[in-house]
Nucleic acid binder design. Sequence first.
DNA 1: GCCATAAACTTGAGTACTCAAAGACAAGGC
DNA 2: GCCTTGTCTTTGAGTACTCAAGTTTATGGC
Lengths: 147, 147
Amino acid sequence: MSEGLDVALRLVRAQSALVRRFDARLGGLHGVSLADFTLLLRLDQAPGGRMRRVDLAESLGLTASGVTRGLAPLERIGLVTRETDARDARVAYAALTGTGRRRLAEMRTTAEETAAEVFAGPAWPAADIARLADLLTRLGGTGLRGR
Amino acid sequence: MSEGLDVALRLVRAQSALVRRFDARLGGLHGVSLADFTLLLRLDQAPGGRMRRVDLAESLGLTASGVTRGLAPLERIGLVTRETDARDARVAYAALTGTGRRRLAEMRTTAEETAAEVFAGPAWPAADIARLADLLTRLGGTGLRGR
DNA sequence: GCCATAAACTTGAGTACTCAAAGACAAGGC
DNA sequence: GCCTTGTCTTTGAGTACTCAAGTTTATGGC
């Protein structure tokens, strides 16, 4: 089997393990999934803590439909609100609420702890984590750091 | 944001892009998803081209339930058959059929082409692909190479 | 031999997405 | 001002999984 294919399959496999791990921790402590967390994080990084649904979709690698469906429960529990645009009545912003921001800060702590556990131990020197970040960036997934 | 968390999120993002790409190619040319292909590939690598469903699940990172559901359509289109164990009536093997093996060989070609496209260009020297393979292996996803 | 426990598998219900279609609005040509 | 085209969003239907519960069969103590 070609190495490229091997890498792609390994990546898919690694992802499902990772998602399970984050889902378990975030779900247990905060009642949200990794997808929920990622969405909130992305909102938090946007100016004003709000974004149009299309842009959110684009930025998360989902369809607009997926964003609508993912946002609904977060609105229901008061982490996100819907805001309108004065200029364009078609657009519905998703905006972080105060509660959302506070809860997100807590989630972020546990997400970082989880990541630290994943990369703990002598198998993961900082240089290798950085190398992995670099390689994954090249692979085309838009990152979220420092935005 | 911690670099570990950043890497984890990047990986998730990269995976969804990758899966979409493979799904499009494999679906278009052979009518199967990347998940289908991975399952068939795993079967092909097992001695006798057959495996117990539990082991298949373990090896793919799915639940037994997911395997049952994923296998059904592949049995329906004749790529896989169900076999019984003479010693233990609980187990139902999944086995590649001759057709399955032939079709898999074709799928493999397009999967390798797709992987080659993903890693094409000067951004991806062979050494970096190998490095990525190594890093992902450390991350715990069980690979499929050379089994 | 019988029973308790455990393993392999399937099934029902639920979740998180996808795509395609539809509704509401915007923008530009004319 | 109207009409066409395009954009933003939601919704219906379908897919691919999950978990929990149920069935069937094996195994080991006694």
